[in-house]
Write a protein that binds this DNA or RNA. Structure first.
Length: 376
RNA sequence: GGGGAUGUCGCAUAGCGGCAAUUGCAACAGACUGUAAAUCUGUCCUCUUCGGAGUUCGGUGGUUCGAGUCCACCCAUCCCCA
């Protein structure tokens, strides 16, 4: 993997760049649709390519390991082939599931024992086997195995958690560097900077990660319950330290405004379930702000879903029709909303790239944040 | 004409002397940030200063401290036999 720095914004820390992988190039800043179980829920790959213009999608180690299982993925020749996606893939390590499925797991310095949410079966993840698993899945970008503490954690717990994450990171790297892709394409390992909401811990984590000299870095453990302002502050602290010539990935974030604020602080990569999950639940991110399409006020609004939207669904279908689909429980509604939201997100980052390259990012960002509303 | 059954908050249901009244659906609103989510939460007779207050279970009377629940008559609907 190679990262080429293209342009720095004049007024902010925003920058554009190009990541080159064996499965193609990624222009940054980029939004990466989440495809946890080998599918971006409700969206055809064809539409991810042509309508959303997704450059890379995510998969999840925990979910794919449990189902369909590594044997199937290996026999298929890796995840790309299994799911018929020829562009880059990034896999999350399962660290987030250690957090979100906390009730079913037991942490130790060795790793994490957990019970499957599918059938209750018992499993064990260690930094080593999580790397091996991601090798088999064949992700272009592989994430370190980390612990993602809640945003409300106290300093003591956050520090302890960070120490564990750092130990796991070194083990991940050791394993990664003595193994190779079974499919002969290059893979890269990104460390994850933790440290909760504590600047001191974030600095410590960023310095440690930076010293390990990897091809890219992630900022994890944000947007997990802390106020947005605190998240922005943590991004600033970390990006001050992370090397400028490597891509920075803010994990799991966020709202359109979060993304713009992240870009302004030097973040290059984002992923979030919001466009798909909220879309399935009837919430649209549009150029005119938030639309809860199930609200009665749209019942007879025959205007386009988003007059400024780039995806075909935006101009093809009306708000009234989309509301009807949701009220009737028709699955096409969720599909249209997911496609629209993803296109909105990817168009937002695409526009950000254009503005940064033109030198007008700062002003545009301020206007967009105002337009999209404080809620976002 | 004779016999039987049933009427509860939009619809459907529960309710068998202490009830503003069960549950489902519908409706209305909210939440969702490295996906255990096509999910979840709240409201859903009227008014409310969220403490309550006022009117309800086809209708009218009655029994009772107390009636959606028991009794009488009436009205409506459905079924069966003529």
């Amino acid at each position: 993997m190679k990262f080429e720095h293209i342009k720095n914004d004049i007024n902010t820390q925003a920058r554009t760049g190009k990541i080159s992988t064996d499965h193609g190039e990624i222009l940054t800043p980029v939004f990466m649709p989440v495809g946890t179980c080998g599918t971006v829920k409700g969206v055809f790959h064809r539409d991810l390519n042509n309508e959303v213009e997704a450059q890379i999608i995510l998969g999840n180690t925990y979910h794919l390991y449990l189902r369909p299982g590594l044997a199937t993925i290996a026999e298929a020749g890796g995840l790309h082939k299994f799911v018929s996606w020829s562009k880059p893939v990034l896999t999350d390590s399962g660290g987030y599931q250690v957090f979100s499925l906390a009730a079913n797991r037991k942490l130790s310095s060795e790793g994490c024992t957990f019970r499957s949410h599918i059938d209750g079966s018992k499993h064990f993840f260690s930094p080593e086997n999580v790397i091996d698993t991601q090798r088999i899945i064949g992700a272009d970008i592989v994430m370190a195995f980390d612990e993602c503490p809640p945003g409300t954690s106290d300093y003591k717990y956050a520090e302890k958690s960070l120490t564990l994450t750092q130990q796991w990171l070194e083990r991940c790297i050791a394993r990664f560097d003595c193994t190779e892709s079974p499919y002969k394409h290059l893979q890269s390992l990104f460390p994850i900077v933790q440290g909760c909401v504590y600047s001191e811990l974030r600095r410590r984590a960023a310095e440690h990660a930076a010293s390990l000299n990897r091809e890219g870095y992630a900022i994890g453990g944000l947007s997990v319950g802390e106020p947005a302002e605190v998240m922005y502050e943590m991004i600033e602290v970390v990006n001050e330290i992370l090397p400028r010539d490597k891509p920075r990935y803010l994990m799991g974030v966020g709202t359109p405004v979060n993304i713009l604020e992240g870009i302004a602080r030097g973040v290059d990569m984002f992923d979030c379930v919001m466009p798909t999950r909220n879309g399935r639940n009837g919430m649209l991110f549009t150029s005119q702000g938030i639309v809860n399409i199930r609200n009665a006020k749209w019942a007879n609004d025959f205007s386009a879903i988003d007059p400024e939207g780039k995806a075909f669904v935006d101009s093809t279908y009306s708000k009234a029709y989309l509301r009807h689909l949701f009220m009737a429980g028709e699955m096409l509604g969720a599909e249209i909303a997911s496609l629209h939201n993803l296109a909105f997100y990817c168009n937002l980052t695409s526009e950000a790239r254009k503005r940064i390259n033109e030198g007008s990012f700062g002003q545009w960002k301020t206007e967009m944040v105002k337009k999209l509303g404080e809620r976002l």
